[in-house]
Design a protein around this nucleic acid. Structure first.
Lengths: 123, 123, 123, 123
DNA sequence: GTGGTCTAGACCACC
DNA sequence: GTGGTCTAGACCACA
């Protein structure tokens, strides 16, 4: 598990992103129970308050459900999760393409650069 | 001219990015003179100090040269500019790939999604 | 403690040098916590912004690490510190040799003069 | 001839230093006539006012003499020149040694580092 | 007029 | 309380 927190951006934002990714990528499957705030905080070496704040945000997004007595769990609506995954991905692509086009890259160049770099990473 | 500054990130960072792009896209051609700090600041409705900081960063990058008493100019070294363009592009690709992989997309999926969307944009 | 600031060079540069030296000479040991910007500024009778700028430079050099909400500390990487010490020393030697050569001293003369004077100091 | 002027320090200071060095190293021998301000300025690609200012400083130091009608010349007092050369050199060594000792280098280390670097330069 | 530096004072997000 | 950012306004050396 990552939990790589850098001091350049707010901790709680990074926690939101990382937990989001764990949900969307299936580390926490739909309907599964989430560890307690305390445990999550300890695992991420973070103040419980900070973890608390991150979970609240995820609840607002609808990815997490709070049960009054028995902790939190991932939403059971698998469709919703998949939809979120696609939506976020398309956003990333959109932003990426816009930035590259502003730099004067055309489609061909973008594709060739990205395939080149994707193979470097592979090593 | 852009100068659209949003309050979500430091202004000086956005200034750096926007001026960077003006240089890379030829709004300020290599070797040309840059308006004075005060003029640029006024135009962007920003405090001169903030603009100054942005320009200093661009100087560290090697895109801008400052002549102590007679203003600043864009570097004449076209190679320098091209290098900056590549560097920035690779940064964008890096960030993009990292985000997508965290969402659980593998190389093949990333490439197919991006080629799909790049053709939508084309229309 | 030094904090002798002369008006002939930018204050923030002198601050960088002096703090640098405190780190290299062990006044602030590796891993130790640094006083807050405000405290340091007050101690040096300097505006907090000026001190902040000095600390930012030290961070870029890798000598200092900043924890967004809990202050700054000296890097724990002793190698980093040693590298800085060498880098600065070589700079001094470079500047020194250049000055001497411009005065028309050749290698032999430089070495003999310096060995002579180094022994005077010894007394 | 050097005339390498960098934009990081006042031009006229650099001119003073470089002309000083030419005198002390014998490029302009004692008693010899100095080119006119205009010529010197043209050669250094500098505004005559700036060169003028540099020469005034050298005059104050006593290295240069102005003849009301026939330009300037180097002082004829060869002893004075040699004394200045030595004095300045010893100052450089002093400053250098002090800096190195502050960095924690002892005599042996200083000598070994300097002999090492002096040979690198030689290549 | 140009860039560079500094001060004073303020506000913000974060923990 | 911490660092980070921004504004406003000032002064300086330089050409």
């Amino acid at each position: 598990m990552p939990w790589d927190l850098k001091p350049d951006r707010p901790i709680y934002v990074q926690l939101v992103e990382q937990i989001e990714q764990m949900i969307l990528s299936g580390v926490f499957p739909p309907g599964s129970k989430l560890p307690s705030v305390r445990d999550l905080a300890k695992e991420a070496s973070v103040n419980p308050n900070t973890m608390q704040r991150a979970l609240s945000e995820l609840e607002e997004e609808g990815l997490i459900i709070t049960h009054r007595t028995s902790g939190r769990s991932i939403t059971e609506d698998a469709g919703m999760i998949e939809k979120a995954r696609i939506r976020i991905a398309r956003n990333h692509v959109d932003e990426f393409l816009e930035k590259m086009q502003k730099l004067g890259f055309d489609r061909k160049e973008i594709l060739s650069l990205i395939t080149e770099m994707i193979q470097e990473v592979e090593k």
